[in-house]
Amino acid sequence: MLMIAVKAFLILLYATFMGFMFMGIIRIVTARIHRRVGPPIYQPILDTIKLLSKKSNITHGLIYDFGVIYALGATILALMFIPLGGVSILRAYGDLILITFLLEIPMLGIMFAAMSSGNPWAGLGAQRALLTLLAIQVPLGFAIVALAEFYGTFSTYEIVMAQQTVGWSITHLPLLLAAIAYDIVLQAMFGKEPFDIMIAPGEISLGPMVEFGGKHMGILQIQHAIALFAETLFFSNIFLGGAVVTAFASPILNTIASLAVLLIKQLAVLMIAIFIGVIFPRFTIDQAARFYWKWPTIIAAAGAILAAL
């Protein structure tokens, strides 16, 4: 019991820290592509400390507070189910469908909080966020179906183990197609261009985030960090082979090594997202929906059908 608590705490700490580093990396890489110097890598942590240490906060009612708390809580819940090298605690229950749903729930919390503020921008942002969700769900669904059909199991951990013997998922054609589709979906899940329609700074004033300030926004920053970590981790696990290192004698060394392997894979996923994000302008929502319902869906459906044969 105590062991589980300690493990969970360590995972949480690691995920939060790495998530913040990822956010910092996003900002630095973006800046470098712009030929700027960019902020230090620990900048998101400073931002979060600043937001949490604000001396006055506003609320729009109980749901406004609860939605934010719920978003972070659900993200932590999702994180616990994703296999993280050798340390994850709930990986036996890390079901593909469950994790897919769990990664979507935090957004529901944010939407609840945003909408309860009554700000028109937030309403507009919620609408766009939901339509993006609707748009990405089709290719996402096909990609998950392809995975489950290819491996015949829904357990993420078993998929990771299977990849140790049959090779990474992306080396198989059906799953390569699924991975391409999923990566395009990931772009929208990260909220990066060209699918940052829901946030759209400068257009609808950050959309759902417009009313959050102070500690609410601070909690959402932490949530964003963990979600970023969890999403990249999920992708690395199911498509890039995860990490199971057994080269060393000591289990601690093995764990550290597998975490390092995972980190490299996660960074690769992140970099693709940044590079795509930096060079593209923003879609409008109906363009995004049409795009997602066309090419990624066709690719993912082809993958799913090939996997089913």
């Binding site: 900002r27 800046a31 712009h34 030929r35 700027r36 110097v37 960019g38 902020p39 230090p40 900048q43 400073l46 931002d47 600043k50 937001l51 506003i58 700074p201 400068g202 004033s205 950050l206 985030m209 417009v210 009313e211 959050f212 300030g213 102070g214 926004m217």
Partner: peptide, 22 residues
């Protein structure tokens, strides 16, 4: 904000919403 003077070096960021701005 852009590459000539790059205020983001100091962690400054333009932000459309006043609720989270300093």
């Amino acid at each position: 904000m852009t590459s000539r003077y790059d205020l983001e070096r100091f962690g400054m960021m333009p932000n459309p919403a006043p609720r989270m701005a300093d």
